[in-house]
């Protein structure tokens, strides 16, 4: 493969944030050996960062160290390189050492958001969920607009069965990214797990409303909305079986429950018959 096409693929991975570490390292080592980096100009640094991350990912520490050496020579005090060397340390050093390294960095500069996130991820990996949650809360109190941080917090809470707190964290994520149906779906599923069925069915319907904004009667549900329709179906069944359901969030029950049940059944059937139909066609073409 020629060098220029390899470069192009790598740039493509970078823009799409693709995690194809094996491929990146194979191509990157070629480029590193032929010393293209010196001719690339400013693009070279992004490439070196990408290669360092990918090679840590597949445990090629020699490549990572070479990249880090070049980056450190160019940017001796860059916070971004600090984060990268922290990641490299996480791969081989014990977590206590890495935590100490991060603490030193934070002491020097208390506004480095990436270091806080690395620190929290190390804590999660060590199993210190409680400390991780409290640090994540503190982090989000300062850097409020980090959607991923809120979702991570919700997942941490869910893993400790703290569903109400998880819902609160998710509601912040919803505020920050109201256009993303997957966060609404996660909210709905968390509410379902917390047995707040009226809230769950509302949020499932909201997911469909957002995800299938341009859908019509004939279109086949796909993606998040299949799961959401199935959720509506489950909620309808739960609501019809149990007459007295408490809702901690005081959400009113939806009207026309029977019609909804019917519609959800129909949509789920449409989705799955279309999927099996496609499968059959695939089988036919294979024969």
């Amino acid at each position: 493969m020629s060098l220029s096409s390899a470069l192009e693929t790598l740039a493509n991975y970078r823009t799409h944030n693709t995690r194809a570490s094996q491929d990146i390292v194979e191509k990157g080592r070629l480029l590193l050996k032929s010393n293209v980096a010196s001719k690339m100009g400013d693009d070279a640094w992004a490439f070196l960062e990408q290669l360092a991350l990918a090679s840590v990912d597949i445990a090629r520490y020699d490549v990572a160290d070479e990249c880090l050496r070049q980056l450190l020579a160019k940017f001796p005090e860059s916070p971004r390189v600090d984060v990268l060397s922290g990641i490299r340390m996480e791969a081989t050093e014990p977590p206590e050492v890495v935590l100490k390294f991060y603490d030193q960095l934070l002491e020097a500069d208390s506004s480095n958001a990436a270091i806080y996130k690395r620190r929290i991820s190390v804590l999660v990996r060590m199993g210190k969920t409680e400390q991780a949650v409290s640090e994540l809360c503190e982090y989000l109190d300062t850097f409020y607009s980090d959607v991923e941080g809120w979702v991570e917090l919700a997942e941490l809470y869910s893993s400790c069965n703290q569903y109400t707190s998880a819902l609160q964290a998710l509601s912040h994520a919803l505020l920050l990214a109201p256009q993303n149906p997957f966060y609404v779906l996660q909210f709905a599923e968390t509410a379902y797990t917390a047995e707040d069925i009226p809230l769950a069915i509302k949020m499932f319907m909201l997911t469909i409303d957002i995800a299938d904004r341009h859908a019509s009667e004939e279109s086949i549900p796909s993606g998040a909305s299949v799961r959401a329709w199935y959720g509506v179906k489950l909620c309808c069944r739960a609501l019809s079986e149990r007459s007295s359901l408490s809702s901690p969030s005081d959400t009113p029950l939806p009207k026309n429950l029977n019609l909804l049940d019917e519609l959800a059944t129909e949509r789920v059937l449409t989705a799955y018959s279309a999927a099996t139909g496609k499968g059959e066609r695939l089988d036919e073409s294979l024969c």
Partner: peptide, 17 residues
Amino acid sequence: WMGDDVETRLLRKYGKL
């Protein structure tokens, strides 16, 4: 809240109401 009348909106969209 967007969820206040979401069921009516959905049912109407799919022709059930």
